[in-house]
């Protein structure tokens, strides 16, 4: 009970750099999900009771094209251990081309991060559609595992 209260408090205050990592081995991951595919996919994973690690904090956005690369840098700056961006598969975007623009920006950012001293593996972007609850579970499990590896070093 106590533990839970602490967690809610922490979550509402945002992420504190170098703060208490909380439970579950403690990595903190911010996920930016598009409203139409990945958020629905994550929701479906929840309703079909697929177990996933609890390290992910989801932020819902209208489209993966809404993701400003600076969101990700800001999340890292404020103490996130990992950032995940997920949207519709290419050619499936609700706004027809948002994820194509996103792909270019995010790939650029991914290549640039190591140059300023942020491990490339701490960031990833994935395409998960609304029906791919199973895929979402795998993505979360694998990504959390990867972040834990990076964190442990």
């Amino acid at each position: 009970m106590n533990n839970n209260e602490n967690n809610t408090l922490e979550a509402s205050n945002g992420f504190s750099p170098g703060g208490d990592p909380g439970k579950n081995g403690g990595v903190k991951i911010v996920a930016f999900l598009c409203n139409w595919c990945s958020y629905a996919g994550a929701d479906a994973a929840g309703t079909s009771r697929l177990r996933q690690p609890e390290n992910i904090r989801i932020i819902r956005l209208p489209c993966s094209g809404r993701v400003n690369p600076l969101f990700i840098i800001k999340a890292f700056n404020q103490g996130a251990d990992g950032v995940l961006v997920s949207g519709c598969h290419p050619n499936d975007c609700h706004y027809s081309e948002g994820n194509f623009y996103a792909r270019r920006r995010l790939e650029f950012l991914k290549e640039f991060l190591p140059f300023i001293g942020i491990d490339k593996r701490r960031f990833s972007y994935q395409w998960v559609s609304a029906s791919e609850a199973q895929k979402w579970q795998n993505v979360v499990i694998n990504f959390v595992k990867r972040i834990e590896d990076v964190h442990a070093k």
Partner: peptide
């Protein structure tokens, strides 16, 4: 400019698949 346009298939981008 590269961020004002896109291609269906990006030859130089290798997307990672975590699933």
């Amino acid at each position: 400019p590269p961020f004002l346009t896109f291609k269906d298939v990006e030859q130089n981008i290798k997307e990672e698949n975590l699933s």
